[in-house]
Design a protein around this nucleic acid. Structure first.
Length: 279
DNA sequence: ACGCCCGCCTGTAAGC
DNA sequence: TGCTTACAGGCGGGCG
């Protein structure tokens, strides 16, 4: 369940590790992970011989720019991992779907048991030079700086429960189940508060909590939970789970008021919050 | 316009 | 012990 902070950690790792490298070979084990392409050869052909010139992020998507203008887009889905390998001799993990080998040696491997993730190569579109396939994405909370009152106007323009709004990728790109709960705790707001009911003070708290929570999570290299797969490019788990205030803490005492954290299931998903601290 | 369900997936763990 | 069921949940699509 990599969300914005986990994807940002991997982006930074990739920036250090693969920028400047040239693709020598591409192996894909089937079509599931590269489903936007016609076949494996077509996917490989758009990568082989290309040099990686930069790594960007849009919400939960990683964009690896290639010389020649194309972009390799990567989404980790629920269980995707990008892992650096020294070479072919390193044992291949189960569910490895794509292996990119560089001319300078070294590999980038895409491992994804649940196969919700994907990779595709596309061109940059139009004057804006954007990825057309990602044009539906909303504001990136860390990349697209904006004033809190502008944020407030956007929030108030919707009539949605706060958690749904935070997780709506068309509105804000990058926030999922873990960080929406953590952000709302930080803001002292319940998940089911309506977005057009917030006072100026509450808007400020929400905006501040969103930015600070995501930044803190990046600092601690993201969240790795017992039942999830997230690790960085070197296979190392994150540590932000140790700082979670509510997520996966049902029955444990609130770090602020000592009352037990409550779990509610909404639409098949778990939501964690403190009934005393969040109003 | 929004809420909610489904289908896509596999690994893990709890329940019978 | 071994099978079945629930759960984890991002995302797109469909329906009310």
């Amino acid at each position: 369940m990599p969300e914005l902070p986990e994807v940002e950690v991997v982006r930074r790792d990739l920036e250090r590790e693969i920028v400047g490298k040239r693709v020598k070979a591409v192996d894909a084990d089937g079509m599931r992970s590269i489903r936007r392409h016609h076949n494996r050869k077509q996917f490989a052909n758009r990568l082989v011989g290309k040099k990686i010139t930069g790594i960007e992020r849009r919400g939960k998507y990683i964009l690896a720019r290639l010389d020649g203008g194309d972009v390799l887009v990567i989404h980790l889905g629920m269980s995707g991992q990008l892992i650096r390998a020294k070479g072919t001799r390193e044992t291949t993990a189960k569910h490895t779907h794509v292996v990119i080998t560089f001319t300078q040696g070294g590999q980038l491997r895409f491992i994804d048991p649940r196969t919700f993730g994907e990779m595709f190569v596309t061109e940059l579109d139009g004057v804006e030079k954007e990825v057309a396939e990602l044009s539906h994405l909303g504001i990136d909370p860390l990349e697209d700086a904006m004033s809190w009152d502008n944020f407030g106007r956007l929030v108030a323009s919707k009539h949605m429960k706060l958690k749904s709004l935070l997780m709506d990728q068309k509105f804000l790109a990058g926030i999922g189940n873990i960080y929406s709960d953590e952000i709302l705790f930080g803001a002292g707001l319940r998940w089911d508060r309506m977005s057009d009911s917030l006072s100026g003070e509450e808007i400020r708290r929400l905006y501040r909590s969103m930015v600070e929570t995501l930044q803190e999570a990046v600092k601690h290299r993201g969240s790795s939970l017992a039942d999830e797969q997230y690790v960085d490019l070197n296979g190392k788990p994150g540590e932000y789970q140790l700082h979670h205030k509510v997520y996966a803490r049902e029955g444990e005492s609130c770090r602020r008021c000592r009352q037990p954290i409550v779990r509610q299931r909404i639409g098949g998903r778990s939501t964690f919050f403190c009934e005393a601290c969040q109003v």
